[in-house]
């Protein structure tokens, strides 16, 4: 599902974000991406959803070589990738409900269907009673959960999460991770960047470790998810 071939990313200021990454994630696999901050976790996730392009090498997602994707196809790619952003990326000029509805709106979902799906997603993160509020009035943890609901609302094929449990208490973190696992069992490929190593070990999924832009441990592809 996600393939990195000799991928390097150098930033214009000379900083090396990623160096010669080779990585293969099978369809329906779940993996954690760990490493210190600045190790390149976010950069790697950005390359997958074309927020950035590699300086060298090839990234393939869902069978598409991203370097050959035309501009007009990028939205279609992103609709298949749900992303939980580290900084939430919520819009403060609209309600929680409308924030979660954006991915459905842009994908042309049936209007009657949107309300149902948004509420299902909000229910899943336990924020159903907050749908009318503005994200500004929510706590950091709640905003994070709104972000999670938005990432999952259109049931993407790939889920990327950048520190999704950074602001959550342990119970809620575990719960959210369970949700991710749930989705994974339903066929969604999940890649979670985190430095909560305790949680990673408890969950027992494949762990990919980055250090200063280099791949230290690629982890083994778990048997059940092999294509």
């Amino acid at each position: 599902m996600i393939i990195f071939e000799n991928v390097s990313k150098r930033f214009p200021n000379g900083h090396v974000g990623l160096e010669n990454i080779n990585l293969h994630m099978a369809r329906g696999e779940m993996a954690f991406l760990t490493g210190h901050s600045g190790a390149g976790k976010s950069t790697l996730l950005k390359l997958i959803m074309l927020m950035d392009r590699p300086s060298n090498g090839q990234v393939q997602v869902g069978g598409y070589r991203l370097s050959q994707l035309r501009r007009g196809q990028i939205p279609a790619l992103r609709r298949n990738i749900g992303v939980v952003f580290q900084d939430h990326q919520l819009l403060f000029d609209r309600s929680v409900f409308d924030n979660v509805a954006i991915p459905l709106m842009v994908a042309g979902f049936d209007f009657d269907d949107i309300g149902r799906r948004v509420r299902a997603a909000l229910d899943m993160v336990g924020l159903l009673d907050r749908e009318k509020l503005n994200p500004l009035s929510l706590s950091g943890g709640e905003r994070q959960r709104v972000g999670i609901a938005r990432a999952l609302v259109n049931r993407p094929a790939v889920l990327l999460a950048d520190e999704p449990t950074g602001n959550l208490d342990p119970d809620l973190s575990a719960d959210i991770m369970k949700r991710f696992e749930h989705f994974n069992q339903a066929g969604v490929t999940v890649l979670i960047a985190t430095h909560d190593l305790d949680l990673v070990q408890r969950m027992g999924h494949r762990t990919i470790r980055l250090e200063r832009g280099r791949l230290v441990t690629a982890g083994a592809t778990t048997g059940e998810a092999v294509e």
């Binding site: 369809r27 329906g28 007009g72 279609a76 609709r79 969604v188």
Partner: peptide
């Protein structure tokens, strides 16, 4: 291209049971 990108992404297309 868009359509195929949408439809060929995964084998089990929806997770309605969980939802």
């Amino acid at each position: 291209g868009k359509k195929s990108a949408v439809t060929t992404w995964r084998k089990t297309p929806h997770v309605d049971a969980a939802a």
